[in-house]
Nucleic acid binder design. Sequence first.
DNA 1: GCCGTTTTCGGCCCGACTGTTTTCAGTCG
Length: 574
Amino acid sequence: MARSNDEVAALLQEYADLLAITGGDRFKARAYEKAVRAVAGYHGDIAGLDIKQLRAIPGVGKSIADKIGEYFEHGSVQAIEEVRARIPAGVRQLMAIPTLGPKKAAQLHHDLGISSIEELVDAIHHERLRDVKGFGPKTEQNILHGVELMQQAGDRVLINVAMDLAEEIVTGLAAVTGCSRCTYAGSLRRFRETIGDIDILAAAENPGPVMKAFRDLDLVGEVIAGGEKKTSIRTTKGLQVDLRVVPPQAWGAALQYFTGSKGHNIRTREMAVHAGLKLSEYGIFDVETGDLIVSETEEEVYRRLGLPWIPPTLREDRGEIEAAQRDELPELVTERDIRGDLHTHTDLTDGVSSLEDMVATAAARGYAYYAVTDHAPNLVMQRMSDDKMLAQREQVRELAARYPKLTLLHGTELNIDADGEVDWGPDFLAGFDLCVASVHSSFTQPREQMTRRLVRACENPYVNIIGHPTARLIGRRPPVDADLDELFRACARTGTALEINSFPDRLDLRDEHILWAKQHGVKFAINSDSHSTTHLAAIRYGVGTAQRGWLTKDDVINTWPLSRLKKFLRKGRA
DNA sequence: GCCGTTTTCGGCCCGACTGTTTTCAGTCG
């Protein structure tokens, strides 16, 4: 379901870009960019809001609220149509080329009539850029190189890919003599679901050796920019990594700055300005005297702004500053709070590890309970049968004796069919300790049908958790189209939890949907959906996503003591 | 275009690096 928030955000971003290309008031363009972040990060669906409610969103004033209203009413916005008519779409696309921004794109369009990437490449080959002011031979090379990179589509990568790479680089740089601290920052530290580039931060009195060690890493494909304090490289696989080295005493301010997000940083810097201070990656300074006030730790930086420390996963300018000012930041769920995994597979269906190995790995993680939830018969390719399922249950019960500290639960992952029915009737389902139910087919049903299908699953008294609720695969399959408000209401009403599937290519529900569902009073289960012993650790990404959705321990059923969990799983059954 | 415990007008985040130019604009994060 393409949320209307995302549609509107894309439209406002286009307008902001076009305003930047046409020149004029750059603060106007910035105001639209601010509104883009506000709309994209808004917790609910903005389609249902009236003008007054739209204006209540910080960063959305009369003009933008009216444009959003006009868009919902007519499907287009006149002011945007007018500027579209003047600036060909291809001119905006030029901005996607690294090193090309709105000014250069506008100049190419104005001086040479270039309005597409193809025309630009052609113009370079015919040496037509030589006469344009500000464009030299290096710029030509940079553009051609940038276009080549775009064609290779070195897009965003999944969080686990970036995390593995970042941890490898951090380990390498931390070992360099003179490097006192090293960590990853940026969107990775905020646990965004995909990562565009990796930000590494190091502290050293003398940056030289750390910079050299970075440039010499085996994974470096090319050095994009190499300065004294900052170096950017592209790995052999095409991912950009930026390293910043700061003096040790500036660590806290630098970490705060390089963690972002951009929106969060703008807010904190504005707060500093209003207090007669200046906040940069080197610290908080007194504007009058230029004296450094604090810089060593993030806690000090936030405290000087009158705020408690804000967890990185909240730093998206989605209300965390206001919550911090009221001292109402949520106490976020952490990986340590997770007492068990409630969605896992074995080699009885499509897993690759045995029941024994999966349980041993769960026990080694210190879990208090663990559910085995292999696929049910309707997912025919998994070749499940009643007999096999019952035999596995026996095995689980026998295995339980070997793990006195770990309670084993026998469950299943049911298949929600096109009508909302599941694999078994009540008699057989009653034998399970818990049931996950998920959509695995008919992904493209119309909205009403899909909504009814999911709500029916919730209404089944044996369904405890809706697995990967939108069934999206990041970068490969879009989310199903359903009325999420209705689904969330049904979950809250029936005592059905929504899964936060931790598998890095799912992360489903995603952060914004979690925030939205939480407003309805829904409970969640953070599960790994493991198909191998190595997958259990992926729960960290589900926890990070849950944090981005502002969840506390109490919101997540698999942080609860077993007795409370079991009560929830009875779901009001007799 | 948005916003307001100094403001309904006059502000609007900050710094590194590059390429071009000779003191700086543009881009990026």
